[in-house]
């Protein structure tokens, strides 16, 4: 009998919970600093641009433009099935364009992470 391998799961804790709650609703939630007004991702208590903790969550449109991609023929974890793909998207978020990376696991669970720099 083939044993079902458990897929690795993200560690969800206070700092990143809001993001993962959003994914359950198929929504992309990222943060914006209320002091320097820059967007950022991944979730952090303090804004990585200015270290202010005066931040807010915003729902992103989820729309984007492919920046790069790969098709992974050999996943890093045997619990995943090959092939899976990763696409780095740039997406338009008011008031300035931002970039995100989307990883798509074999069964279609979408995943996103924000690039560190807003595109100029």
């Amino acid at each position: 009998m083939q044993q079902q391998m458990r897929k690795p799961a993200p560690f969800i804790y206070k700092e990143n919970k809001r993001f993962f709650d959003g994914t359950l609703k198929h929504e992309l939630h990222i943060q914006r600093c209320k002091d320097c007004h820059k967007f950022y991702f991944y979730p952090r208590t303090a804004c990585p641009h200015c270290l202010s903790e005066n931040t807010e969550w915003v729902k992103a449109s989820g729309k984007g433009k492919v920046y790069s991609f790969t098709i992974c023929e050999r996943p890093g974890n045997p619990a995943h099935r090959a092939p899976s793909s990763a696409r780095t998207l740039s997406t338009s978020l008011s008031p300035r364009p931002d970039r995100l990376t989307i990883t798509r696991a074999p069964r279609g669970s979408a995943f996103a992470s924000r690039r560190s720099q807003a595109a100029a």
Binding site: P8, Y42, N77, S113
Partner: peptide, 10 residues
């Protein structure tokens, strides 16, 4: 927690 490796990448 957002590394693609958790989600199927190599």
């Amino acid at each position: 927690a957002f590394s693609g490796r958790l989600y199927g990448l190599g």
